[in-house]
Write a protein that binds this DNA or RNA. Structure first.
Lengths: 202, 202, 202, 202
DNA sequence: CATGAATGAGTGTTCATTCAT
DNA sequence: TATGAATGAACACTCATTCAT
C-alpha cells in the first residue's frame, strides 16, 4: 500500500488551534471516511481525499505528514467516540445493567458505519503500533474490566482476555453481517447480545 | 500497443497436468501465502511471489491469469481444507459431539496460519464474487446446518444466520487473539467453545 | 489491488490553462512526434516520449490519460493544420484556382513531415473512432465538396467518394515517395497534381 | 514491436524440402495472415500464430528464425502472386490492352484481402530492407515499365517514377476504401482506373 | 524434429509525496 | 499558508524467444 512509514511521522502535524485549521482538519478526516466507505481501499488515495475535502493536496500535507497518519486519525476518532460513550455510562447502575449498555454501545458503534468500521479494522492491523491508539484501547478495555468485575457478575468475567474477546465477538459478528448485507439491525443486535451473554454465562 | 482487459479471468489458467507443472503451481501458491504472512498486503506483489517461488514472473502468468486469481486460489485452498475436515466428521455421533468436533476444526483452521487466514478474509471481501468460492461457502454452511438441526440441539439452533454467526465468532476471536500475539491455543480454544456454546444456549 | 480501465478516456486531461502547463503539453506532443519519426512505432513508448519532452512519466500522465490520447492529440493537431489551411482559401477565386490551392495544401501537409503523417495514418486506423477526429474529417471533406461542386468543375466531380479519393491519391503518392526517399518535392507535386487533375478529368 | 532484428535472420530457416515441412510452413503463413486480418497488429503474436497453425511455438521457430521473418515471408507471398499474374499477361496484346490488364490485376490483388494487404504495407515500411523483397519489387516495376514504354503509350509514360506512382495510387485508393468499409468493388475499380488513366493522360 | 514450460526485459500506468510559486 | 504541477519508484502484466525433455 504505502511507500515508507518512518516511525516518527504517524500523527497529525499540528494541533488545529485556529478555527479554520480545525475545520480543514475535520473536512479531510470526513472526506477520508467517505472515500473509504464508497470506494474501499482501492479508491482511498490522498488525491481523492483532498479533492473530496475541498482542499489541495498540498494543504492535506500541511495537516498530516503522510497518508497513514490520516487513517490513524480516523481510527482514533472512531475509538474515541466509543470510549466516550461507554465512559459516560451511569456508575450507579447495576453491573448487569451497565453491561447491557456497554454492549449496546459497542454494537451501535460498529453498526453506525459498518463499512468504515470494517476497513479501519483492516488498516489498524496493517499499521505499526501507535501509542495513542494503544492507550485508547487500554482505556476502553479498562472500562470493560471495571464493569465486568462488579459484584453481580459471574466469577471470572473479569479475566485478562474478556474485554478483548467481547469486542472481537461483536466486531466479528457485525462485520460479517455487514458483508452479507444483512438488513435487520434489531435481529442482529439480539443475536450479538445472546452471544455475549452466553460467553459470560449470564 | 495497448492492454486487453478481458473481464473475468479469475481462475487458474492451466490444469497442472504434468508433475513439474503441478509443482510450480503449488510453489507459487505457497510463496504467495508466505509473502502474505511475512509482509502483509503491502509486500504482496506478483514479482515478490514469483521470486519466492523460484519462478520467473512469466511462469507465474502461465499458471494464473492475474494476481487476484492467485489470491482466490489461496482462498479456495484454505476453504477446501476446512470443508473436507468437517465433511469427514463421523455421522453416527451425537449432534453435540459432532458440534464440538466442528468447532474445533474451525478453530484449528483459523489458528493454523492466523495471519494468512485474516488477510485472506480481507481479500475475499475485496474480490468480486466467485462461483467456486460461493459454492464452497454454501457447502460448508450446509454441513453446519445439518449438525445444528440434530435432535439433541436446542430449538432454533438451525436458524438462517446461525452458521454464519458461529463462523464469525470463531474468526473474530481467533483473529483478535492472533493480533494480540496470544500464545496459548488451548486457553483460546476453551474460550471460543464457551462463546459458541453460550450462543447456542448449550 | 487491480487497475481500473475506464473505457473511453481518449482526450487530453487538462486544459493547459497556465503558460507552463501549455508548454509541457506541447513539449510532450512534439516529443511524441519526434520519436515517431525517428524510431517508428517500435520506439514509440511513453517513457521515451516523457524523456524526450524533458518531463517525468508522471507529468506526462497529468496531461494525457493514456498513450493513445497522445497519439490522438497528434492526429488532431495535424488534421487541424490542414483544415485551417484549406478553410482560409479565398472564396472569390474560381473553382479551378481554389482546387489547385486545395491540392497544394494537402500535398504540403503530407510532405512537411512525411514519416509522421504516414504513421499517424496507421495509428488512426487502429484507434477506436473518436468524435473530434471524425468531426474534423467531415469538416475537411465538406470543404473539398464545396470546391468540387463549383460551376466550372466537371459533372460528377462532387460525387460521394471524390473527396476521399483525392485525399487517398495524395497520401498514397506522397507516402510512397517518402518511403523511397524521393528528394525533389516539386517534381512530386507536379505528378500528384497531374494524377488529381486526371482523376477529375480536368 | 520486436526486440532485436539481427540482420542475418530475416528469411525462412529451411527450404521446405519435404512435403510435411512445406505443409507446416504454409500453415504458419496462412495462420499469420488470418490473425493479422482478424485481430490486427495488436493480436499478431507468435503464440497466436502457432496455435492457429496447429503447431507448437517451438515448431514455428524451426521454420522461421523470428517473428519478422514470418511477416516478410507473407509479404513475399503476396508480392509474388502479383508479379506472377502480371508476368503472364499476353505480350502480343497492344500496350493499352496490357495496361488495363495490369491495373486490373493490381487492383484485384489489393482488393482480394484488403485488410491483410493494408497491414502488410505497414509492416513492410517498418522492416529493414530485404534483398528478396527489393528484387521482387524491381521485377514488378520492370514489367510495368515495359508495358508503359509500348509504342501506343503517351510520351513520358515510362518515366522513372511512373510504376511506383501507379502502384501508390492503386494501393492508396483501395486501402482507403477498405477502411471506410466501401462495399461495391466495381464502382471502386472504375474510379481507380479513371485515376490511373488520368495520370497517364490516356 | 516436436513440444510447451520457462524466461525476463520491457511496457503502460498509478499514486504518495515534494516544492517552486 | 495554500496551491497543484512535477516527480519517479513501484506495480501488474505481455510476448518474443530459448531449451530441456
Amino acid at each position: 500500500m504505502n511507500r515508507k512509514t518512518s516511525a516518527a511521522q504517524l500523527n497529525p502535524r499540528k494541533q488545529p488551534a485556529q478555527r479554520r485549521a480545525a475545520e480543514t482538519f475535520d473536512a479531510i478526516l470526513e472526506a477520508a471516511a467517505h472515500i473509504l466507505e464508497r470506494d474501499g481501499l482501492t479508491g482511498y488515495s490522498t488525491n481523492a481525499i483532498a479533492e473530496r475535502a475541498g482542499a489541495s493536496i498540498g494543504s492535506l500535507y500541511q495537516y498530516f505528514p503522510n497518508k497513514d497518519a490520516i487513517t490513524r486519525a480516523l481510527i482514533l476518532r472512531e475509538m474515541t467516540a466509543l470510549r466516550d460513550q461507554i465512559a459516560s455510562i451511569d456508575h450507579s447502575l447495576s453491573g448487569r445493567a451497565r453491561l447491557q449498555l456497554l454492549v449496546s454501545a459497542a454494537i451501535a458503534n460498529q453498526l453506525r458505519r459498518p463499512v468504515l468500521a470494517r476497513l479501519l479494522d483492516v488498516e489498524e492491523a496493517r499499521l505499526p503500533p501507535d501509542e495513542n491508539v494503544d492507550r485508547l484501547g487500554r482505556e476502553t478495555a479498562e472500562i470493560f474490566r471495571q464493569i465486568l468485575s462488579s459484584e453481580d457478575m459471574p466469577e471470572g468475567a473479569g479475566g485478562p482476555h474478556t474485554a478483548a474477546d467481547l469486542i472481537a465477538i461483536i466486531r466479528g459478528m457485525v462485520d460479517a453481517a455487514g458483508r452479507r448485507g444483512e438488513m435487520d439491525p434489531q435481529n442482529l443486535t439480539d443475536r450479538v447480545i445472546r452471544a455475549v451473554n452466553g460467553y459470560l454465562a449470564l
